[in-house]
């Protein structure tokens, strides 16, 4: 069997950081595989796992609709492809989103993660923060959380496993092969979450 092929959705946001973190995770784990930026439906059809990076969820959603990427991603996830949504990526994976100030949003969503998200839940950029959090359920006892205009989960369905909370707010979840975090592991030197995702892709592969 060939190595795993992991894609990072390269529409908008911090794509390169995720490519680098995933490459380093593969290398550390000694797993053979490639990491590619993906943008077109053709590129997406070839991958075994997808990371939707941080950025602006409205922009990533709207522009992935333009070239048919969103439809292809939906199809792949429905067929069991593991996906890791970070910040904006987690918003896109969810069923419902509202903004803390502006209210209910009518933005394109992938409609998989059975949660309701509050965008900008911790406030604006000045309230962005770093804090040590923990994801005990997946064996990560300490993790440097980097929260940038971060969302949080305000309602979650019974199939959703809560992986981490910050001060009572849900900031990391898992539902089947879908993982979502409010914070940005790709901006830290800690590869444990990218390794966790790479292993998920490898198991599924």
């Amino acid at each position: 069997m060939n190595g795993v092929n992991i894609g990072v959705l390269a529409v908008q946001g911090d794509v390169a950081e995720n490519v680098l973190a995933t490459q380093m995770a593969l290398e550390d784990l000694g797993i053979i595989g490639t990491v590619n930026e993906v943008k077109t439906p053709e590129q997406i059809s070839d991958i075994d796992g997808l990371i939707i990076p941080g950025g602006e969820s409205t922009v990533i959603g709207t522009l992935s609709m333009v070239n048919g990427a969103l439809k292809k991603i939906k199809e792949k996830i429905a067929n069991g492809m593991p996906v890791f949504g970070i910040c904006a990526g987690m918003i896109l994976l969810s069923k419902k989103a509202k903004d803390r100030v502006v209210g209910e949003m009518d933005q394109p969503l992938l409609d998989f993660l059975d949660v309701k998200i509050e965008r900008n839940a911790f406030g604006r950029q000045q309230d962005s923060f770093e804090s040590e959090i923990s994801l005990e359920k997946i064996g990560i006892s300490k993790f440097p959380g980097v929260f940038i205009r971060a969302p949080s989960i305000i309602e979650s369905g019974k199939n959703v496993e809560v992986l981490s909370k910050f001060n009572e707010k849900i900031v990391a979840v898992k539902q089947g092969n879908i993982v979502g975090t409010s914070f940005h592991p790709e901006l830290t030197g800690d590869l444990s979450l990218h390794k966790y995702f790479v292993n998920l892709v490898k198991t599924k592969h």
């Binding site: 946001g13 911090d14 941080g54």
Partner: peptide
């Protein structure tokens, strides 16, 4: 700087 990274390609 991370905030600026989220704006990339925009």
């Amino acid at each position: 700087r991370g905030f600026a990274h989220m704006l990339k390609n925009g």
